Simulated scan of single mutants.
Amino acid sequence: MATTKYQVSGMSCGHCEVAIRGEVEQIPGVTGIEVSSATGNLAVTTDGAPVDDAAVLAAVEEAGYEASVA
């Protein structure tokens, strides 16, 4: 397993978390997602290979937020 952490800006509520989770969970290989609007953190776990950072950043953007690798 590999986990990568991201800093997400613009999240303010549970709806934000759900929107991001819905987009990120569609990325192949993602097995776990932890997202917190309180801290602005997103942790993505994969099944072995490192997650594609560009895919995660694009998914977060699709949900309406901005992110960077923490």
Rank of each mutant, 00 (worst) to 15 (best):
V60K: 07
R21P: 03
S68Y: 05
A67Q: 07
V8K: 01
Y65A: 05
G29D: 15
A59K: 10
V51T: 05
Q26H: 09
D52W: 03
G14I: 04
S36M: 01
M11K: 05
P28Y: 01
T3Q: 13
K5S: 08
M1K: 10
A38G: 07
R21I: 07
V69W: 00
V18G: 10
A59R: 12
V60A: 09
A2P: 01
V30Q: 10
A55V: 08
G14P: 05
I27W: 11
A70R: 03
T39P: 00
H15K: 11
G32Q: 13
V24M: 12
K5Q: 08
K5P: 00
V51R: 02
A49K: 08
K5H: 07
Q7W: 04
G29K: 13
A49H: 00
A70W: 00
I27E: 09
V56C: 11
E23L: 09
I20Q: 06
L42R: 04
A54T: 10
I20W: 12
V30R: 13
S37I: 05
G64S: 07
G14R: 05
I27S: 10
E66N: 13
V51W: 04
S68I: 04
E66Q: 15
G22Y: 02
E62L: 11
V60D: 10
A70C: 00
Y6G: 02
A2L: 07
G22N: 15
G32Y: 11
C16P: 05
I20C: 06
G10Y: 07
G48C: 04
K5V: 07
D47P: 07
S68V: 10
P28R: 03
V24E: 13
V35H: 04
A55P: 08
A63C: 09
E66F: 06
V56E: 13
S37K: 04
L57N: 06
A70E: 06
A55R: 11
A63N: 09
G40L: 01
E17H: 06
V69L: 03
G64H: 07
S68L: 04
H15M: 11
D47S: 15
A19D: 08
A38Q: 11
S12R: 11
N41T: 14
E25L: 11
S36H: 01
K5I: 02
A54P: 00
E17M: 08
A58R: 13
A43G: 01
D47W: 08
E17Y: 09
V44L: 09
T39I: 01
M1F: 12
G14L: 06
V8F: 01
T45Q: 14
G10P: 04
A54Y: 02
A19I: 06
I33C: 10
Q26L: 13
C16Q: 08
A43H: 04
S9K: 12
T4E: 10
K5R: 12
A55G: 10
A19W: 08
D53G: 00
T45V: 12
G32K: 14
G48S: 03
A63H: 09
C16M: 07
G14Q: 08
Y6T: 02
L42G: 03
L57S: 08
S36C: 02
V24Q: 14
E34T: 14
S68R: 11
N41K: 11
D53K: 01
S12L: 07
G32F: 10
S12W: 09
G10R: 02
G29Y: 03
D47H: 09
A67G: 13
